[in-house]
Every structure is written in structure tokens, then in C-alpha cells.
Design a protein around this nucleic acid. Structure first.
Length: 448
DNA sequence: TCTGGGGTCCTAGGACCC
DNA sequence: TCTGGGGTCCTAGGACCC
């Protein structure tokens, strides 16, 4: 049971607080150095070595093994800032392989779903379970079983934090990772106090690089210091997020648990180019490909978009001044038809593009997404009911479906739109990518 | 030479209405 | 000379997360 506590007049000023008469317990299951662990599943040579997974254009570190972290290589560090360490410490560099990571993530979540339906998947490598909804279990044993089962079935090591609120499970999880234990439960007041005292304020979920220094300035150095504050004070100082955070640290669950919810509000597809681009046509090929990916994602989730926005930008790190151009195109009827998305995106790009810049990346963005069913109603009530446009819609839908099926069976871009280019210049560097072992027949692991 | 990509939520401020 | 006030909606931008 949930009750709504309103702390203001407007709806954004309120949030749900679980009723005090039902104590909550959540578990946070988090894949250890997830992308690195995915790589190690298929390449044991990487075990016990410093491993770094690089971003889209092999530009910076997006995942690090514990051995790489021990070398003080920071998250998001640019490769050129630590390239001198690579040879010295035999660091294994890998281009990112999201197809592999998301497939292993899906498998991991499916294993979790065999334990309970009350699961809230919050990112590619982590999910919350509502343990208080599962009767008669020993929670720590239950978590140990989950840990063993995921490792046995998927090969990914996970860490599990157990606590009365989501924010506290994050803290429990962090301590477990630090102490290299697989399960950490913090539930008694003593356990919670001790955990809060050893957590730096900057490590609290929801406190980032802007807020942490401000809080330290007024003498709040640990999670425990913040938990001593009155929620109303936090509301004044930090806003609604601050109040929620303090209550969560004090043991009152305030962050919604979204089991079975998949209500995506926006989708974006963004890539850095392999080389800097100046010509409109070269950037248009990239935008065309991004719009194609957007269409695939929208159709897979049975969503449609009323608009498409496009950006192209120069590098924020270069010597020349930073430039970012933005353009938007609206559709008469919300759509997920790739042909229309590409046309709209190219039109938007002509607003965003400016001659004379060296562009470094570009992307497309769809917002205000609707379910496909919602457009059928719109079409019914649109005055233009002529057969030719209906027939056109039907034919486009069949074409998109056919392309999706072929590309799913025989590999991405077996059939592609000519506007995306035959030999496009925008393709990012991905020289060190491992095979997509679980999603491509021709990239299966060969065991001799 | 070389610096990611995909999300969510909140807030401030402008436009607009009566 | 004096030039309202309250509400809603939308959007851009900030902050945060992984």
C-alpha cells in the first residue's frame, strides 16, 4: 500500500512514501565492472589483468577492471591521458561491444525474474528486487543463491546490497564491493549508522559533482551527517530531491518501485565520427544511419514519435570555438517509419548545419513518445481519409517490417538505406572490439 | 592523431490566458 | 504619475545516473 504525501500545491512537488506500517526491504543486484565482466565471460585471458573498455570512438575509459582501477585510471579518462601506462602494465584495451553487453544483461535479468516478478530494472547492469514482497525467506541466503545462480548461468559476478530503501541498498552495495563480499545487508539501526558513517557524501546516490562540494562547505562530509538533517531543511537547501534523499537515508522509502514498467519517454542515437567532418552530405549520411537505428528501436518497442530533433557539434576540447547546431522537424502524424524519420532528420539537419565548422559528432533525438495504438485512433479521426495515403502507410509498414526481419535474421544492415552511404566517412574507430558471441552466428566462440 | 552514449527528473523562465 | 496577478503549459538547461 502506498500513500501520497503532498508537500506543496503543484504535482511535481510531491512524491510517494511507502506506508510506515509496511516495512520495506530491497535488494540491489549490480554487475561487477559489468562490461569488463562480459568480456571475461568469453575471454578468460583477461582474468586478473587490468582491462579497460573504451567508449564508442575508442576515446575514453567507460569500464575498468579492479586491476585497472588500482592503477588510478579514472572513469571517463581519455585514452591519451593514460596511454603511457598501457604498455607498462600490459593493460588490455577493448572497443565497446554493446550488442554483447545488452544481450548478457537481458539474460541476467531473466535469471533474476525466476526469483521474483517484483523486479525493477534500472540500468544495463543493475536491478532492484522488492524482498519484502517475498514471504518466508532468509533474505541473506536468498541473495547468496541469486549471486551463485547468476554466476553459474551467465558467468557474471554480481554484488548484492540489502536495505530498507533504494538509496541505502546503494550504500550497502558499495561497501560490499569495497570489502569484496558478494552480499551486504544493512537493516538494524546500528548497521545503518555504521554504513552511513563510512560513506563519503560524494558517494551518496543522487549527490554529484555540483552538490558534493556545496554540502562539504557547510560541514556535511558523510552520508551520516546528511541523514541527521531535517527533511524540511533539505527541501529548502537542495529541493525536492534533497528532501527525498534525506528521508531515504533515514530509512523511509520514497523512490518508486517500477516493476513491469517500460514507458520510455525519449530515445536518442548519438555517435562521434571516426574523423572530423565538414561537408553537409557526409554528416547527412551519419544522421540517416542514426535515424534508421531510431526507427528500429521505436518499432521494436511499438512506439511512435511526433518530432525528431537533430544536432551536430564540434569538439568541446579543440582549439576552435565550440559550436552546436540544433534543428527540429515535426510529423503530421506521429511515426516510426524509417523513411519518414530519415527525411525529417535530414530536413532538421539543414537547420542545424553551418558551413565552416569541423564537426565531431551528431545525433537524433525523439521525445514525447506515444504507443502505436494511440496513433491508430488519430488516423481514424484525421480528415484525410483518402485511400492513397492509407495504402502508402500500409506499404511503408510492410517495408519496414520486412527490412527488420531480414536484418534480424542475417545481421544488422544487410538491407540499408542508400542515404546512409555506401562507404560513409563517419564510421567510428572500433578496432579492438571482441566478437558478438551471443547474437551473431558468424561470431560464435570457437573451442578447439 | 586521440576526450561516450543513453537516459531521467527538476527547475526557472517565457509565453499566454483571463 | 500610476501600468495586476494568478495560473498553466512548454522548453531549455542543469544535475544526476550508469
Amino acid at each position: 500500500m502506498k500513500c501520497l504525501l503532498a508537500f506543496g500545491v503543484l504535482s511535481p512537488m510531491s512524491f510517494t512514501v511507502c506506508a510506515a506500517n509496511r516495512p520495506t526491504t530491497f535488494a540491489l543486484i549490480d554487475g561487477n565492472n559489468f562490461f569488463v565482466s562480459c568480456e571475461r565471460v568469453f575471454n578468460p585471458y583477461l582474468n586478473h589483468k587490468p582491462v579497460i573498455v573504451l567508449s564508442g570512438n575508442d576515446g575514453c575509459a567507460i569500464a575498468r577492471s579492479n586491476e585497472a582501477k588500482a592503477l588510478n585510471i579514472a572513469m571517463s579518462a581519455a585514452l591519451h591521458t593514460f596511454s603511457h601506462l598501457v604498455k607498462q602494465h600490459d593493460i588490455q584495451l577493448l572497443s565497446c561491444n554493446f550488442e554483447l553487453y545488452s544481450d548478457l544483461s537481458t539474460r541476467m535479468m531473466k535469471v533474476l525474474q525466476t526469483f521474483t516478478a517484483n523486479i525493477d530494472i534500472s540500468s544495463i547492469d543493475e536491478a532492484f528486487l522488492d524482498l519484502s514482497s517475498i514471504p518466508n525467506i532468509d533474505q541473506e541466503n536468498f541473495a547468496q543463491t541469486i549471486h551463485k545462480t547468476i554466476f553459474k548461468c551467465i558467468g557474471i559476478p554480481v554484488t548484492i546490497g540489502i536495505a530498507p530503501t533504494k538509496t541505502l541498498t546503494k550504500i550497502a552495495n558499495r561497501i560490499a564491493k569495497k570489502t569484496q563480499t558478494s552480499v551486504k545487508s544493512i537493516q538494524t539501526p546500528h548497521e545503518i549508522e555504521s554504513a552511513l558513517k563510512q560513506t563519503d557524501i560524494s558517494a551518496v546516490w543522487g549527490i554529484g559533482r555540483a552538490l558534493a562540494p556545496k554540502l562539504k562547505e557547510i560541514g556535511l562530509y558523510t552520508a551520516f551527517d546528511l541523514a541527521q538533517k531535517d527533511p524540511r531543511w533539505a527541501r529548502k537547501m537542495i529541493g525536492i530531491m534533497g528532501e527525498r534523499l534525506v528521508r531515504e537515508l533515514q530509512g523511509t522509502s520514497c523512490i518508486a518501485f517500477n516493476a513491469d514498467e517500460d514507458d520510455k519517454k525519449s530515445i536518442q542515437v548519438t555517435r562521434s565520427f571516426g574523423v572530423k567532418l565538414t561537408e553537409f552530405n557526409d554528416i547527412a549520411e551519419a544522421i540517416s544511419l542514426h535515424a534508421t537505428r531510431l526507427g528500429e528501436q521505436l518499432r521494436a518497442k511499438k512506439l511512435i514519435t511526433p518530432t525528431i530533433s537533430v544536432f551536430c557539434r564540434t569538439s568541446p576540447f579543440g582549439n576552435s570555438p565550440y559550436f552546436k547546431g540544433i534543428g527540429v522537424t515535426g510529423f503530421d502524424t506521429p511515426t516510426n517509419d524509417t523513411q519518414l524519420l530519415i527525411k525529417g532528420a535530414i530536413k532538421a539537419l539543414s537547420q542545424a548545419y553551418q558551413l565552416g565548422h569541423s564537426f565531431q559528432s551528431a545525433g537524433v533525438h525523439a521525445m514525447g513518445l506515444l504507443q502505436e495504438g494511440q496513433v491508430i485512433q488519430k488516423i481514424l479521426f484525421t480528415p484525410s481519409n483518402d485511400l492513397s495515403s492509407k495504402e502508402k502507410n500500409k506499404r511503408s509498414r510492410s517495408l519496414n517490417e520486412a527490412i527488420d526481419i531480414i536484418n534480424k535474421r542475417t545481421g544488422k544492415d544487410t538491407v540499408f538505406w542508400a542515404s546512409s552511404g555506401i562507404n560513409p566517412k563517419h564510421v567510428p574507430h572500433q578496432g579492438k572490439r571482441s566478437n558478438r558471441y551471443t547474437t551473431r552466428w558468424d561470431e560464435l566462440k570457437i573451442v578447439i
